[in-house]
């Protein structure tokens, strides 16, 4: 089954690449603006041989990883706190719903004013965008706690911290993992966007330089890299999720009985 999926996936990708080669070759779009796959692949090869490319990749991944780590930590902490402290959830609900839909990109002028073109302005956008993904999932997860399990834990005299640890956290975990997976993708999007628009060092800035330099195949090659990066991050996040949830279900079985 898994092998079949892989084969189908590879066929789909091959067909897509062939289409990318054929469309400009047939003259449907101009080669100058949309180079065929083979030329993009050539430019990608040149990029991979350039040490500046790896530095840029490192910068992007650094921004992504630090931003995601801060967002996950802060999102989980804030989510649990909001749920545990009485009335806090209700008091903050409207504020959260107001702040959450603000597009991170709209904060670019603020980021530039505060931090210029440094890594910190990338982090501001990345953390802002991915924090809400985590927080909202944690809040939903906490709502899902089985009242019977909660009451049972209370009856056995479990304190607040013990109930968070043994009842709330295992219930919320599937939601949290979904949040982390979504946040990982959002964080990458925002990291590249910030670099592209602000010019902070990284893949995005390199795309912008290629664009202003009229180096079209190089630009597409770098865009392909960001796509592959997104793919790898998604695969990684799913693997982590699967492992975490396998562990969770076995424990939850014991809690419920």
């Amino acid at each position: 089954m898994r092998g079949e999926n892989l084969a189908l996936g590879a066929t789909g990708l091959a067909a897509f690449l062939a289409l990318g080669e054929a469309v400009p070759r047939l003259g449907l779009v101009k080669e100058a603006y949309f180079p065929p796959t083979s030329r993009i692949a050539g430019a990608l090869g040149d990029e991979l041989a350039d040490s500046a490319f790896w530095t840029a990749l490192g910068d992007t991944l650094t921004g992504w990883a630090i931003g995601l780590a801060i967002a996950v930590g802060a999102g989980i902490a804030a989510g649990v706190l909001l749920s545990v402290v009485p009335h806090l959830r209700a008091a903050t609900a409207s504020t959260i719903e107001f702040l959450r839909p603000i597009p991170s990109v709209a904060l670019i002028p603020l980021a530039v004013l505060l931090y210029g073109t440094e890594l910190r302005s990338v982090l501001l956008l990345v953390v802002y965008a991915s924090f809400w993904q985590i927080l909202v999932q944690v809040l939903y997860g906490v709502q899902d706690v089985d009242p019977v399990a909660e009451e049972t834990a209370r009856s056995y005299g479990l304190g607040t911290w013990a109930r968070v640890r043994h009842v709330l956290w295992p219930t919320a975990l599937p939601y949290v993992m979904t949040g982390v997976r979504l946040a990982a993708a959002v964080a990458l999007i925002l990291a590249v966007t910030a670099e592209l628009v602000i010019g902070a060092p990284g893949l995005g800035a390199r795309i912008a330089v290629a664009q202003t330099s009229q180096a079209v195949p190089e630009m597409y090659a770098l865009i392909v890299v960001t796509g592959v990066l997104g793919l790898l991050i998604n695969v990684g996040a799913r693997t982590v999720e699967r492992r975490a949830l396998a562990w969770h279900q076995s424990v939850r079985g014991e809690v419920a009985v």
């Binding site: 790896w54 530095t55 840029a56 990749l57 490192g58 910068d59 991944l61 650094t62 992504w64 990883a65 440094e118 890594l119 060092p201």
Partner: peptide, 9 residues
């Protein structure tokens, strides 16, 4: 990320 690629910052 940092070890493999270094940083330009």
């Amino acid at each position: 990320a940092t070890a493999a690629c270094g940083s330009s910052d």
